[in-house]
Amino acid sequence: LKVYIICGLMAAIAHFVWQKYLDKKSGHVPAEYVEAHKSDDLEVGPLPYIFLPLLPLIFILGFSDYGIQGVKMNVNLAMFLSLFIAMGCELIRHRDFRKMAASIQTFFKGMGDQFANTVTLIVAGETFAFGLTSLGIVKEFVAAIQSLAISADVVGVIVSTIITGLSIVMGSGVASMFAFAPLVPNFAADLGGNATTILLGMQNAASVGRLLSPISAVMIAVAGIANISSFDLVKRTSVPVIVTFITSTIAIWIIH
Rank of each mutant, 00 (worst) to 15 (best):
Q105T: 10
A143K: 14
I145W: 00
Q203M: 13
A152D: 13
V159C: 12
G192T: 08
L132C: 07
Y49V: 12
L77K: 10
T118D: 09
A102P: 00
A149H: 02
A124W: 05
M100F: 07
K2V: 04
N76M: 15
Q203T: 08
A223P: 05
G125Y: 03
T118V: 15
T106M: 11
G112R: 08
N194K: 03
L199H: 00
S151F: 05
I228Y: 06
H256L: 11
M73G: 00
S172A: 13
L47K: 10
D113E: 13
E43Y: 13
A181M: 12
T133W: 06
A129N: 04
E43D: 09
P30R: 12
I6Q: 03
A143N: 12
E35Y: 10
I158Q: 07
S147P: 02
I137A: 15
N186S: 15
Q203V: 14
P185C: 13
F80M: 15
F108H: 11
C89K: 00
L9K: 03
K2S: 07
M219T: 11
H28A: 14
G125R: 05
S39A: 15
G8H: 06
V239C: 06
V174I: 15
L233Y: 11
T244R: 04
W18C: 11
V17H: 01
S207K: 03
S26W: 11
G70R: 10
A129P: 03
S26F: 10
R236E: 06
F51A: 14
V17A: 03
Q19H: 11
A143C: 07
F63E: 02
L166C: 10
I13R: 01
S151V: 05
S172T: 15
L47N: 03
L135E: 09
D40R: 07
L121G: 05
S230H: 10
I250Q: 00
C7K: 00
E126K: 09
V234A: 04
I198G: 07
V222C: 12
M111E: 03
I168S: 00
